[in-house]
Design a protein around this nucleic acid. Sequence first.
RNA 1: GCCCGCUUGGCGGAAUUGGUAGACGCAAGGGACUUAAAAUCCCUGGGCUUAGGCCAUGCCGGUUCAAGUCCGGCAGCGGGCACCA
Length: 899
Amino acid sequence: MPLSPVTPEMSRYNFRETEAKWQKIWAERGCDRTSDDPAREKYYVLEMFPYPSGRLHIGHARNYAIGDVLARYKRAKGFNVLHPMGWDAFGLPAENAAIQNNVHPADWTYENIRVMRGQLQLLGLSYDWDREIATCDPDYYRHEQKMFLDFVRAGLAYRKESWVNWDPVDNTVLANEQVIDGKGWRTGATVERRKLTQWFLKITEYTDELQEALNGLDRWPDRVRLMQENWIGRSVGARVSFDIEGRDEPLEVFTTRPDTLFGASFLAVSPDHPLAEELAARNDALAAFVDECRRMGTSEEVIETAEKRGMDTGLRARHPFMPDVALPVHVANFVLMEYGSGAIFGCPAHDQRDLDFARKYDLPVTSVLWPTDAEMLTDERAAALDDALRAQFDADPVQEVDGRGRLMHVGRTAYVDTSRASYRYDLGTLSDGQALSVDAAKDVVVKALEQQGQGEAAIRYRLRDWGVSRQRYWGCPIPVMYRVDDGAMVPVPESDLPVELPKDVDLTKPGNPLENHPTWKHTTCPETGKPAIRETDTFDTFFESSWYFLRFCSPQSADAFDAQAADYWMPVDQYIGGIEHAVLHLLYSRFFTRALNQSGHSVAPEPFAGLMTQGMVVHETYRDADGNWLFPEEVTTIDGKLVTLKDGSPVTKGRLEKMSKSKKNVVGLETVVDGFGADTGRLVLMSDSPPERDLEWSDAGLEGAWRYVNRLWRLVTEPAVPLPPIDAAAPNNLSPAAAELRREVHKTILAVGQDFESFRINRAIARLRELTNVIAATSGRGDGEAWALREALEALTLMIGPVMPHFAEEAWSALGNNNLVTETDWPVADPALAVDEQITMGVQVNGKLRGTVTLPKDADKTTAEGAALAEPNVIRALDGKTVRKVIVVPNRIVNVVAA
RNA sequence: GCCCGCUUGGCGGAAUUGGUAGACGCAAGGGACUUAAAAUCCCUGGGCUUAGGCCAUGCCGGUUCAAGUCCGGCAGCGGGCACCA
């Protein structure tokens, strides 16, 4: 349904004039400008800066409005607040737009920035625009080029070969998102993996520290910390080296389950393992298989969900403890070269993936541990377990015999429970069939391996070094060159920075435009004066966002950032953004601060003290009979059925989706701001859901918020009685209604403050609406009511200010104030006034509510119990029963236990 | 495949962190005002029920005087997985 825009005549509160007026006044008075002031306590509020993709929609607006509420609240509480905004301006969409619309990425980007800045300003967000930065500006990226050279010097950046998705038709590297079902998104060609020499940053240097410091981030959501922990993926296990028949070099394997070594029935190496490459060179079938594996994508999801496949190399490995057992060595598509040593041993009985693999290639399955309680695995017990398992796998029995001829039953489900175990093997102190913990069994095996010199305890991490090279144009050039004569890598001298992107490029040609550029890449070595070729790769755009929060502290600094300014402002007190950045951006930033410290800078190691991950704004979607998305304006209802306006064909209502152009469910910012005003939009975005949860956008919600704005405006401009002068003293005696209103005001001040502090903005607004209801119900007639009404309206206006800043200024002014809400302190609650005198307590009988009693606050237990037992409904419920016990929770509840 | 999150009326959500489930709002129904509409204001509202009650926070179990909240199991939906940002 299209919105019915509000015309100024219809509204009593004229948001059009009002919002423009106050935005102008704030700008003129520099309300949002911030300067370093060590005498004042600082507060740094930061919302993740946007990629300038085109236009803002209300999903973006929510993110920034949440930050603005906090910034304005903290300012009112007396903090020196830094609240900056900028643009994460390098990235793939600019190149795509360039190709599609024949526009230069820079022009496209800067135009988007211009439009989006204007949109942000419409919302009345209190940014210090003097600090605005755009990462594609050479004044910005020159600093990160220098940082990179510092990293190179500190040994934190290095080059190595790494795999990329390669489109063989376009001759270009593809991002994971450009690979759709294994094909290039534009050409449809089957994507290959290719090896390129690329730059890496040594994030693994800080693996342990990055993990351990997570514990100190107590103002981060638990789930983000957990996601980072999983990402770092510390796993404790063992390195095992297997001798290979006919080869001198043993094969190194990492395992987290050394206790299952006796159940090993095969080894598997990654298709990218040097051994696989070596063997493929003289084995055509194997080479074909390796090639096929390389046609898969590079993402973990693709590799893990692909059908598990392998090929026997013909090599045989000797089991470290059972010299007569020869294990086949396979190349398998599910083994990742990047993790561990790129080789595993498979124990099918106790790993589901290994079992699937073993079933497929008919490899032995040998159980080594059994589910038991902590008792000895006697022959009788083993027989009973055998029976139990036989029954369990009756439908799909697969019989196996272990090395000593005992029957084992493992079907299609691996036994992976590690909480209780008995082992079947003998080793040193471990006697056959002893019950012992998995950890103890691991120790036994590892010690035995160490004695034989065939392994040791080891810790491996999932975290890999951060590959920062991108074969793309629209990014920050990597400031190095390679001498033509000897191929040596030479850093660009600092005095030659920045290495600027050339503007004259042709993006329509296949391949990397910088590589195709006729002149830019050719230069001379500053050391020898001989010809050199520039690095034509650019940085991953996460490079820019890993330090922008530092630049905001001193955006004009000749250095990347001013140490004193950073010392004052850092860390960011509250960072706000989407959960999609839970790992990469947030982890890279945490790495950057550490890397900077190691390369000559000095900053606090943790960049973000507090983190809030806000939910998405979702909106309804529509699709026609063919499944094509439709705009809501293309849909109407006839006879209760959804049909298209065009030809009346049936339409189905899809589920709520994150706003996106492709799903045609975007609600533009202008629709809201032009029709109802920025404040009304902000109110909806803040009130309908808790910030961290998804928000369902609806036009009805917008209209409801608009009604509230006008209701509030009428209460301020047309109070029940004329309000007393602004400086009138409180009357000596207040009527009960006036006293009740005061109590409500002071309770609300306390509650709203707590709610804002803890990001429960939706609840703060609910409390303000409750206060509004009490104000509306106050007649203004009784003794002191007019005075209490003024106090209430002023407090309400100040408290709604962070959410609806323009409205609050206008109302504040209408109440006769001649200063700004923006320059006024947060109202102070009188705790004595903010307390209820009477408390209504529930009375339960055997846990079921039977009545309520109203008592003075803090009434003692005896009083409460007496009142509860005298309550008529309670008496009836107790009829014929004997009271056994009475539980009284003061000011809360009474529970009478009776039988 | 692995990891994570979510699930409360017709709807968005509250619930002082174990203590009166449904605050506040949206949508709805009824009424007032109006020639009429819009706007505004007032009232009603989880379900079943004859009084009394009974049943209700995705499902099944458990702990407790007391469970939306804690524990165990299950289901459904959503998100992330290293070159989107």
